[in-house]
């Protein structure tokens, strides 16, 4: 029991350090919000923002905006990790290396939800979208999609840190692997916005990714993070 308490104490220390570090290193999430909001603005101008878009279009643009918000944050995190070797310091600690991923996922998902919410708010205003028909569904779909995408980005960015061609490996891995998550998120938000489509199967896709993200790092990280 005491051992379990010690593990949670270590995990909490890791989460606190990650959160403080991320909040203070503003470049990543500020750049993320700027990119996301700019994307919505440019899309709004290009599509003549005064006209109302079909729900599927609006949701597609929203999730592309969310991706534009998250990618600079993942890249800034990788650069920050490399700066003084904090990740190597953590890899030397006597804990299962997957805990580093879980702590980072918790913190980064929180920041990702806040920054993605800014993009969603802008997109409602710029693209003249009325409030969703099922606000609770919309919030649940939005948060689930962002949490899973954030986990996926953190997972792949961490794996890519031990690759010598990380700049190419990360996007090459991310795009195909994230595609079903983006599709699921778009479909779920379309349903929440306009009662259109069947949400059940897309919830299952998100759930499957969530379960994989919970299990795979535990299985893979200890051997995979040794070069």
């Amino acid at each position: 029991m005491r051992e379990v308490g010690l593990w949670w104490w270590r995990f909490a220390a890791l989460v606190r350090a990650e959160a403080a570090s991320r909040a203070r290193a503003r470049t990543g999430w500020i750049a993320g919000v700027c990119f996301g909001v700019l994307w919505v603005l440019v899309a709004g101008i290009a599509l003549d923002g005064t006209a109302r878009l079909p729900a599927a279009w609006w949701c597609g643009l929203l999730w592309l905006g969310v991706l534009c918000t998250l990618v600079p944050q993942w890249l800034a995190d990788s650069a920050g990790d490399a700066e003084m070797g904090a990740t190597s310091g953590l890899l030397l600690a006597p804990l299962d290396r997957s805990w580093i991923f879980y702590a980072r996922w918790c913190v980064r998902a929180g920041f990702a939800c806040l920054t993605a919410a800014a993009v969603a708010g802008t997109s409602f205003i710029i693209l003249n979208e009325p409030p969703p028909r099922h606000p609770a569904w919309f919030a649940a779909a939005f948060v689930s999609g962002v949490v899973v995408l954030s986990g996926l980005g953190t997972f792949l960015a961490t794996l890519a840190t031990v690759s010598r061609s990380r700049e190419a490996v990360f996007p090459l891995l991310l795009i195909p692997v994230a595609l079903p998550v983006i599709l699921a998120s778009v479909r779920l938000t379309v349903y929440a916005a306009a009662s259109y489509g069947r949400p059940q199967v897309w919830w299952e896709v998100l759930l499957a990714y969530f379960v994989l993200l919970c299990v795979l790092p535990w299985l893979l990280y200890e051997p995979a993070l040794e070069e």
């Binding site: 350090a17 403080a20 570090s21 203070r24 003084m84 030397l92």
Partner: peptide
């Protein structure tokens, strides 16, 4: 490298 967080 010092193996620490620069922003802590």
């Amino acid at each position: 490298q010092p193996l620490v967080y620069p922003d802590l």
